[in-house]
Design a protein around this nucleic acid. Sequence first.
DNA 1: ATTCGCAGGATTGTATATAATATTGTGTTC
DNA 2: GAACACAATATTATATACAATCCTGCGAAT
Lengths: 235, 235
Amino acid sequence: MIKLSQTDPRSPKTTVTADKVAASLSLAIHEHRLAPGTKLGEDEISELFGVSRTVVRAGLQSLAHQQLVEIQRNRGAFVAQPSLREAREVFEARELLEPRTARSAALRATPQDITILEQHIKDEHAAIAAADQGRALRLSGQFHIEISRIADQTTIAGFIEALIARSSLIIALYWRRESALCESFAHHALVEAIAQGDGQKAQELMHSHLVDLHSALDLRDRTAQSRSLKDALRL
Amino acid sequence: MIKLSQTDPRSPKTTVTADKVAASLSLAIHEHRLAPGTKLGEDEISELFGVSRTVVRAGLQSLAHQQLVEIQRNRGAFVAQPSLREAREVFEARELLEPRTARSAALRATPQDITILEQHIKDEHAAIAAADQGRALRLSGQFHIEISRIADQTTIAGFIEALIARSSLIIALYWRRESALCESFAHHALVEAIAQGDGQKAQELMHSHLVDLHSALDLRDRTAQSRSLKDALRL
DNA sequence: ATTCGCAGGATTGTATATAATATTGTGTTC
DNA sequence: GAACACAATATTATATACAATCCTGCGAAT
C-alpha cells in the first residue's frame, strides 16, 4: 500500500484526530495559555495540526458543547468568556454537586485511590515550586475530577468535569490578584478525611473549599457595557 | 426546494441546519419513535433532510455529546442503549438535582410561570386522552425542564435537560409494563406547592415523584450477554 | 470632515470527492 | 460439509472544492 498522507503515521487507529485537536486546545485553555476571547481560526488550527478543516471543526464543535468555546455563525470560534452570571451559576452548581461527591468518595476510596490523590498533591506542589502557574491550575482541577471518579458516579463526574473546565475560564477572567491561590492545604485536608473514610468531614471540607474559591473571585456587577468593551481589551 | 422554517435570528450560535436535524432526531427519540439501538445511517438521514452528510454528522455528534446516540468508529451512529448502571446513575443524579431545583422554582415562580405549568399539565392530559403515549412522555419530560427553567439556574437546568433526555431512553428500555405511568397527579401536586411558594413541600414532592419513577423501572441485573443479543432483537 | 455605500479579501458553511475501514458473500481447500 | 481466505460491497472518515457571509478599507457624496 502506498502512504501519501503527511499526517502522523504512528497512531492510525488509536485516537481519533478530532479528539486530539480538542484535547490539545482544551489543555491550553486549562493552563491559561489561551485567553478567553481568543479567536480560534479553522485554517490556522488545521495548519498547526496538519489536518483538514473538517476534523478541526469537529473538535471545535465538541469544545463548544462543553461551553469551552463559543461558535458564532459565520464569524468563527472563540475561547468562551463566561459572564458574571454564568460564573456564579457554575460555582453554585459545584457547591451542590461536589460536597456530596466527596462524601461518596470518602466512603468508597481504596488505598490505591488515596495513593493517587497524594501523588496528585505532590505534583501540584512540584508545579508550584517550578512557578508553573498554568500546570498547577490544571492539576488542581484534575484533583477534583479524580475525587469524582473515585465516587464512581460517571454521570455526575461528567457534569463536574464540565464545571471544572469552565471554572478555569472563570478564574482567568475574574480572579482577584490579591487573594493567593493556596489550594494545597485544603486538598491535603480533604485527602486525609477521605483516607479516614470520614464522609461527613470530606463533604464539609469540600464545601468550604469551594466557598473559599468562590469568594476569591471578583464577581461584582460591573457596567453592562463592559461585555463589549472587554472584547476590544482582550485583543 | 422546500423551505421548512426560517432560522431564529437571535441565536446564531451554531449551524442552524445541523441543529434542526439533531432536534428532529431528538424529538423522535423522546417520543419513542426511534428505539434504542436503531442504526442512524448518514446517507439515509442526509437524503431524508435533503442536506449533505456533513451537516448530518454535525447533528449526530451533537446528539452523541448528549449521550442520546452512540457513535462507533467506522461503524456509524446508533440510538444509545443506556446500561443498567447508567440508568441507575441518571436517576440518582436526578434525585440529587431536581428536588433542590423544584425548591428554587417554588421560591421564584411568577403567576405567569404557574399558568405555563398548568397548561403543560392540560397538554399532558390531552395527549393521554388521545392515547398518544409518545407525546405524553415527551410532555412529561418537558414539565420537569420547565420547572428547572423557572428555577433560573441555566447551568443546572442544562444538566437536568440532558438527564431527562436520557431518561426517555431508559424508560424505553427498562419500563415495567405492570406499573402505570400516571404522572399527572404528582405533577399537579407539584404545581400546587410551587404556586403556594412552598419550597420545602415542592422539594419533597419532587423527590418522591422521582423515587416513584425510579421504582417503576426494572433495573435488576440480567445476564451480561443480553447487551449484544439485544442488538439482534431490535433489528 | 463625516457618513454611507460598495467592492475586495478573508473566513466560515455546505457539498462532493476520495481514502480508509468494516461487513458480507463467495469460493476454495481440507 | 465446515472453515478459512479473500474479494466485493457498503459505510464511515477525511480532504478538498465551491458557495455564502462577514469584515475591512477605500472612495464618493453631502
